[in-house]
């Protein structure tokens, strides 16, 4: 059982919800990311999601697009991110997953990637442009190294696809709250979305809802519908507007508010 699986097991016993925070690795540089990770942990984050920057982030809005550009400009790469996590692991057992696009993982070699990721203490991987239909070999490789390959589901997903992901996914299911890209406005009809309702009836994997969660109040509401809430653009935006020095504190204090909101349930 990896740290993500253990985390959800523990939360289930306490009827608690998971606060999943997303930041882009290497924005504005990897040293800052490592410091941010410690700050997020002390703010009460349960699972850390690190975005692997890609030159062509097709499913991301402007905030994460710009953060990816900053990270790439500063020289971030999958190899350096894995090394940074390895270092972070010396002093933390926080569950960590990497989220990104397929091509950098293919260029690394996916067998090598899962081997190195597991060795560095990375617990999960979410590949935005890899649906289960194309993912068989990659899923087997992830599984053999004990890394959870996490799949997305969306409001457009039908019963067949929900079944497929529930069967093939690992770690948790990431439910995209809206038909849109990261950073968009959260859907007002989340609680009545058919796909989410169907998904909640399956009991194989925990569900985390993300995309568009911008305020602690929204996070609290979303947490009533899921096992965890993912917050991304709202945090990434602070790094952009505050710069490195004040950004760390700004992110930590917003993360604390999210943490209180999400953990007040249960």
């Amino acid at each position: 059982m990896n740290r993500i699986e253990t985390k959800f097991k523990d939360l289930k016993h306490q009827s608690g919800k998971a606060f999943v925070s997303f930041i882009t690795a290497g924005d504005p540089n990897l040293a800052t990311t490592e410091r941010l990770m410690h700050r997020l942990e002390s703010a009460g984050v349960d699972i850390l999601e690190l975005g692997v920057p890609f030159s062509d982030p097709m499913a991301d809005g402007p905030v994460i697009q710009r953060s990816s550009e900053r990270a790439l400009k500063a020289g971030a790469s999958l190899k350096k991110i894995i090394a940074m996590v390895k270092k972070f692991r010396r002093s933390s057992q926080l569950p960590i997953l990497l989220m990104g696009y397929l091509n950098p993982i293919l260029a690394y070699g996916f067998e090598d990637y899962f081997r190195d990721a597991a060795a560095a203490g990375i617990d999960g991987t979410l590949i935005v442009d890899l649906p289960p239909e194309e993912g068989e070999a990659i899923r087997r490789s992830a599984h053999s190294h004990g890394v959870s390959l996490i799949y997305l589901l969306a409001p457009t997903s039908d019963d067949e696809r929900i079944g497929l992901v529930a069967k093939q996914g690992a770690g948790f299911i990431y439910y995209v709250s809206l038909t849109g890209i990261t950073g968009a406005k959260i859907a007002a009809d989340l609680s009545s979305q058919r796909a989410l309702k169907t998904l909640r009836r399956q009991r194989t994997l925990p569900i985390c809802v993300g995309f568009g969660v911008k305020t602690p109040a929204q996070a609290k509401k979303v947490a009533t519908l899921a096992d965890g809430v993912v917050v991304g653009s709202a945090l990434v935006e602070l790094i952009e507007t505050h710069g490195v020095k004040n950004g760390l504190t700004a992110v930590e204090s917003l993360a604390k508010r999210f943490s209180r909101a999400i953990h007040s349930l249960g």
Binding site: L130, Y151, L153, A154, P155, T156, S157, R161, V176, T179
Partner: peptide, 11 residues
């Protein structure tokens, strides 16, 4: 193949 975000798979 079909390497896209889940949202587009049904479309």
């Amino acid at each position: 193949g079909r390497y896209v975000a889940e949202t587009l798979m049904p479309a």
